[in-house]
Amino acid sequence: MEPRELRRAVAAGREAAVALGLPVDDVHVVHNSDRVVLRLLPCDALLRVAPAQGLAEAEFEVAVARRLAEAGAPVAELDPRVEPRVPVRDGFAVSFWTYYAPTGSAIAPAEYADAFLRHHAALRAIDLDAAPHFTDRIASALNVVNDRDRSPELADVDRAFLADTLGGLGAAIGGDRARDQLLHGEPHPGNLLDTARGPLFVDLATCCRGPVEFDLAHAPEEVAPHYPGADSGLVHRCRALNWALFSAWRWRRDDQMPDRDRGRTEGLRQVRAALERCG
């Protein structure tokens, strides 16, 4: 978020917490992109604050978190001191989560894969009719890439490249749904916390349906070999697809990701490198 919006989001988070009886003296910005993650002290709560147009997504994430916690998944849990709902304050949707102090240790590939196995098992044990298919995400990205008003700075050659990549890989991977199940959706290293309870997944709003390789492709390359039964070729194709999705979002006119220009260049480079690896 831009500085002005960030200040409003911080104020909205503080007001929402105080209204629910949580003591707040200090607010620390943990992460800032299209939504903000805040740590509040001394109540030690973690808040996700997003523009109110993202209310449905925030409510979906809260519902997913409740179901997965009940199923024993390795996920960050909601704050037990407040009702599991998403209040709206000054144009922002606010959700409340448990804060987990980082241990400072790196998550080993085998440990990452084990967290995936337990997470995927819990996802198979719940029903989420509202969860989209991962190809819906591809369709949204193609809408951005194919609409010059929504991606005005995307060069024609790169526009054609991303459209071909998204369409081709989407059709190839999404055509066979025999391996589909519920997934995290974006379980990259930034969404797996190393805590005293072990690795815990966060950012659950991206839950979708697809093959487990779509999730594995978000993790470091060393992780997939520790996941029994994973199709390495499919993981490589999904990795190229994930970079194409990342690139499409960075070219949105209203993208709020910090250091967006570097992300645009790096995203296109990573798509090409991943496609070369796929052959």
Score class of each variant (00 low, 15 high):
P87G: 13
E266L: 12
R137K: 07
C278Q: 10
A205L: 09
T103Y: 11
T265Q: 10
R81P: 03
H226P: 09
D129L: 05
V144F: 05
V62Q: 09
R260Q: 13
G13I: 08
R48Y: 04
R118Y: 05
P109D: 04
A121M: 02
G198S: 09
A56N: 06
G190V: 08
T135F: 02
V202Y: 05
A141F: 02
V36F: 01
A12E: 10
F161R: 15
E222W: 04
I107Q: 02
P51Y: 03
F116T: 13
E5Q: 15
P220K: 03
E111S: 05
D194E: 10
P211V: 01
P42Q: 07
L268C: 02
D149A: 15
Q256N: 07
A69Y: 09
N32I: 01
F134K: 08
R264Y: 01
D261C: 05
V27K: 05
H184K: 03
S33E: 05
V235H: 14
I107W: 00
D231P: 14
V94E: 13
R48N: 11
R66S: 12
D254W: 02
L154F: 11
A19Y: 04
R81S: 01
W97K: 07
L216F: 02
A106S: 14
D127T: 15
F201P: 09
L216D: 07
E15H: 07
P228L: 00
R209S: 02
D158E: 14
E61T: 04
I138F: 04
A217E: 12
L55N: 12
S247Q: 02
C43F: 11
R277W: 14
G198F: 08
V29E: 12
A110P: 11
R197E: 15
L166D: 06
V10C: 12
L20Y: 06
P211Q: 00
D180G: 01
D158A: 04
T103F: 13
P211N: 06
N143G: 15
V82P: 13
D34N: 04
S232I: 09
A130H: 02
D127M: 08
T165Y: 06
A9M: 01
V30R: 11
G267F: 08
A12W: 04
V18T: 14
